[in-house]
Simulated assay, not measured.
Amino acid sequence: MRCEAEFLDVTLRYGKTTALDAVSCCLQPGTTYGLIGRNGAGKTSMLSLLASCRRPSSGTVRIGGEEPFENANRMGEVHLVYSRDMSEEDDSIRVTLEHAARYRPGFDMAYARDLLSRFRLDPAKPLNKLSVGMQAAVNVVEGLASGAAITLFDEVHHGMDAPSRQLFYEALIEARQDSDRIIVLSTHLVSEMAYLFDQVMVLDRGRMVIDEPYDTVVDRGVTVTGPAAEVDSFSGSYTVIDRKTLGGTAAVMLYGSLSARERAEASARGLELSPVSLQELFIHLTKEENAYAINQS
């Protein structure tokens, strides 16, 4: 599979602050990426580079083999969707989408109207008269209908209620079916959105610490529960990213795949193995005390 977009040893600095530190990655067509990280990890900075809002301090960003910054042929292939202040925007939803369609040849207005109906949005209503959640839905409609080869959603679900978020997720699944679009979802709602991810990218303090298929990532996490002495003996050679005890029972979270032989050994010792969710892994992998061990694994 080809790299439609790639980062090659990209660093981005704002004065003395390093937002991205030597990041390299490859975005492949037809893939939905979950971009996760704590506040300030560099997620928005990474998306802004893809969207040609700025150029890197060092390293190279490429889209279709070309650097996109100030490159009209490539800038139009990327659409960045983010929460914005609409308090001064009195254009109607219809006019807003018509403006968007003028600048994006692939914009599907019929699909946009269908999405407006699903979200129960009145096309005649001004943006500044909408609730925060409705404004977010307008952003979602614009992004999905844009037809952009690379569509970036940066915490765009902010303010949306649960039913609206579910509509968004269903539309995302539709958008990636029979399509080569690259979709990047930057989110803190990891547990709710994980099922949408084909590939997981975890940024921690500006560095890419994980960039792997979703199934590979979650297979690396396992919780081992049982008598404390047996748990500690079994887990001694693994990377332990969390440990809890209750009386004589311990539960440790390991980072690393277990072979069939190792799982059989755990069972023979009377230990219980259980999977770990992506959210649990994310929380523990980005703890200060785990950073070095995970970067070395």
Rank of each mutant, 00 (worst) to 15 (best):
K244H: 15
A268G: 11
L278F: 07
A264D: 09
T249G: 10
G248R: 07
M253E: 03
G248M: 11
T245M: 01
G247W: 04
L285S: 12
E272M: 09
L258K: 02
M253N: 03
V276G: 00
P275R: 04
A268W: 00
L273W: 10
K244I: 14
T239P: 08
E265F: 04
R261L: 07
R263G: 14
L281T: 03
E262L: 05
A268Y: 00
A251R: 09
L271P: 00
Y255V: 09
D242H: 12
M253I: 12
R269Q: 07
S274D: 11
S259N: 10
S277Y: 09
G248L: 05
F282N: 12
Y255H: 13
P275T: 04
T249R: 14
I283Q: 00
H284N: 15
L281M: 13
T249L: 12
I241W: 13
L281A: 06
H284G: 07
L281V: 11
V252Q: 10
V276L: 10
S274K: 12
V276Y: 01
S267D: 04
S267T: 06
V240K: 11
G270N: 02
G256T: 07
L246C: 10
G247F: 06
G248V: 05
G248F: 08
A260N: 02
H284D: 12
L285D: 04
G248K: 09
